[in-house]
Amino acid sequence: MTKKALITGITGQDGSYLAEFLLEKGYDVYGMVRRTSTVYYERIQHIQDDLNLIQGDLSDQTSLNSAIRAIQPDEVYNLGAQSFVPTSWNQPVFTGEITALGVTRILDAIHTVKPDTRFYQASSSEMFGKVREVPQSEETPFYPRSPYGVAKVYGHWITVNYRESYDLFACSGILFNHESPRRGLEFVTRKVSFNVAKIKLGLSNELRVGNLDAQRDWGFAGDYVQAMWMMLQQDEPDDYVVATGKTHSVQRLLEVAFSTVDLDWQDYTVQDERFMRPAEVDLLVGDPAKAYTKLGWEPEVSFEALIQMMVEADIARLQKDPQHRGFTVKA
């Protein structure tokens, strides 16, 4: 019997890669999209005919109950969120409404309508924030440093709460930064790859960035969505850190991106205080040992190969369309 999966946030980076992966596995894939004035389908355009898109909203309980009732999904992947950290400072209440309470609403819809559904919650390394230990594992205490991180902590713990209170098969994947050519321009990796491509093609001559010393554990989104699926195939629900276990600075990101096009990053980069966070997260690096041993998951794309992939994809896009604006971030 064909399995059915519902993905919230299907038009985002992770949603599009997960949808591709599940289609290849033979799933019927349903995607929830919000009814807004502008809906961006660019990331899923190539598979849109194979998807079942339904309208719904993480801020609306009725639409979530209706979706679970109509689809009767075997698996639900909650990837929908206000997912950009700087925006969470400008829209903290909206971020809490969607990124925190939205998780409760969808868990409650599953509990009420179809409690045997397996649920995946997209948790985040931003929950660790001001880190208590390096590297960070499933046991590391949370200390979020942004409204986004705080909202994700709520979403994480409400998932644990519903799992333990109602015996739901509910998992959280604590994903560290994961990037791709489909990343929104608001994120530093894509901002760098896009602007390096513009500089290489003579469309720009400088790149403004914030903290060069900030370090992140960056992996490829296409690898990470496989871990999401693996979690829901286990005998028992659990939470897992998904990461590469290696960290790189923003300066290293610049070095790799510019070297891809044989340029020196220092000739084109300007540090700009506007891109500094009110409260910086200094060193995020994950310990993925549990995912390696229990799930048998490990990343395949290296940091250098990932950044090269992103720069080359942006060069190809801009050669085809010099006015290309890149993907916009989707809540």
Rank of each mutant, 00 (worst) to 15 (best):
Q55K: 12
I47Y: 11
G15W: 01
M310V: 06
K4E: 09
A170Q: 11
F303C: 10
A243R: 01
Q226D: 06
N211K: 00
T112F: 09
V270C: 05
G173K: 00
K198T: 00
V103Q: 02
A122G: 05
K25C: 12
A221C: 01
S193D: 05
L185E: 09
G219S: 08
N90W: 00
F84P: 12
V150P: 06
H46Y: 12
Q266P: 03
F169H: 04
R216Q: 11
M1A: 14
L101T: 13
V76N: 03
M127C: 10
V329E: 04
A81Y: 07
D74H: 08
K200N: 15
M127G: 03
D238P: 12
P135L: 15
E186G: 14
W218C: 06
R190A: 14
N65T: 06
N177T: 10
R274Y: 07
A81L: 11
I71E: 13
T2V: 08
E42R: 03
R277Q: 12
L253I: 07
Q61T: 02
Q234V: 05
A291I: 08
K294R: 06
Y224M: 14
S123D: 15
K294A: 14
E126G: 03
Y27S: 03
R132E: 11
K200Q: 13
Q72K: 14
P144D: 10
E20P: 08
L295Q: 00
G149S: 02
T159L: 07
F194A: 11
V311S: 13
G56L: 03
P322L: 01
D49P: 10
L53D: 07
M276F: 15
A257Y: 04
D235S: 15
T269F: 00
D272A: 08
R317V: 07
Y162N: 04
A279G: 04
D239V: 14
A19Q: 04
V103Y: 02
N211P: 01
E139R: 01
A305E: 15
E179N: 08
A5Y: 07
V192W: 10
I98V: 15
K130G: 13
F128G: 00
P278C: 02
L175W: 10
P322W: 02
A243M: 07
P86R: 09
V250D: 02
M127R: 03
M310Q: 15
G9E: 12
N78Y: 06
L64G: 12
Q266R: 08
S124T: 07
Q319N: 12
T36H: 06
G12I: 14
E42Y: 06
R69W: 05
A109R: 08
L168E: 10
Q48N: 15
P73Q: 04
F258S: 11
Y154A: 01
V188I: 12
N52Y: 05
D321Y: 09
L185F: 02
S204N: 13
R34C: 05
N65D: 15
P288E: 13
G9W: 06
T2P: 13
Y17R: 00
I71M: 06
N211C: 05
N161F: 06
Y41P: 11
S123M: 12
S63D: 02
E126R: 03
G219N: 10
V39E: 14
V242N: 08
P144W: 02
